[in-house]
Design a protein around this nucleic acid. Structure first.
Length: 251
DNA sequence: AACGTGTCCAACCGCTATCTG
DNA sequence: ACAGATAGCGGTTGGACACGT
């Protein structure tokens, strides 16, 4: 059998996009909207795979994207959502207006994961690493015999944490069978998000929009964990939800 | 200055889910 | 109900850049 390639690979350009290509794609999407990604390259005059066009648009060219580092508040959201949803980056991203799954995934892998480990928190389970030394844990993870450890971690993730089922968080009013409709139209682009779908305290995004810290003055990752208190002390298995003390408003 | 190493992130790949005929 | 087409997702890669020696 084998699956057909998403597009004709021969003669297609790969690698970084040029400004010219960006321009063509933007012009096309703005005048025609998002549809039929497979047809986009041909219609837009691009020698790219439709998939590549979609990715470029959603991850980089979309006008509603925020650029720059995630704010403290956004990072906390990511961590909390990850505790509830796991590596479902698109779901997580859907709660962070202007952020893409790719961006969040990258940030998680490069920043947050590292920082959590440093704090002695397992990035997968969001539980304190129980072993005496964090380093030991890291070594175990790295070792080729980590299969058992991984299984244990998985088990921990599901048994030790009161994991909130994603469906309980996402679209609580929508039957799961129809929740897939998110894929039929532009999921996160046109609809800045069912943030309210999450079981969170009343909270107005406007007060936390990070235009004020979107840029050079985002002082994150200075090994200052002081504002990460919410991550620890949940031994009782309670998944930390947003706390009022979070400094979102002071940004 | 040159080199090695680490970090970041855009982009790709392969798979799954969903849609459509 | 089924198969093929398409969209979307998550993991991974590779190049550019920063930093240390």
């Amino acid at each position: 059998m084998g699956r057909q390639p998403c597009c004709e690979k021969v003669g297609l350009k790969k690698g970084p996009w040029t400004a010219e290509e960006d321009k063509k794609l933007i012009n096309f999407i703005l005048s025609n909207g998002q549809c039929c990604w497979r047809a986009v390259p041909k219609l837009a005059g691009l020698l790219r795979c439709g998939k590549s066009c979609r990715l470029r648009w959603t991850n980089y060219l979309r006008p509603d994207l925020k650029r720059g580092l995630l704010s403290d508040f956004e990072e906390k959201m990511v961590i909390d959502l990850h505790a509830q949803l796991g590596n479902r980056w698109s779901k997580i991203a859907s709660h962070l207006p202007g952020r893409t799954d790719n961006e969040i995934k990258n940030h998680w892998n490069t920043h947050i994961k590292k920082k959590l480990r440093k704090m002695g928190i397992d990035p997968q389970t969001h539980k304190p690493i129980s072993s005496p030394t964090v380093q030991l844990q890291a070594d175990v993870e790295r070792s080729s015999n980590s299969l058992i450890v991984t299984d244990l971690e998985e088990e921990q993730a599901t048994t030790c944490m009161n994991v909130i089922e994603p469906q309980a968080i996402l679209d609580p009013c929508i039957p799961s069978s129809s929740s897939s409709s998110s894929s039929s139209s532009s999921p996160s682009t046109s609809n800045p998000i069912g943030f309210e779908d999450l079981k969170l305290p009343d909270f107005d995004w406007l007060y936390c929009n990070d235009t004020s810290n979107n840029g050079s003055d985002v002082g994150v990752w200075e090994d200052d964990f002081s504002s990460w208190d919410f991550l620890v002390g949940h031994e009782d298995g309670e998944v930390p939800i947003f706390q009022e003390s979070w400094p979102c408003g002071l940004l």
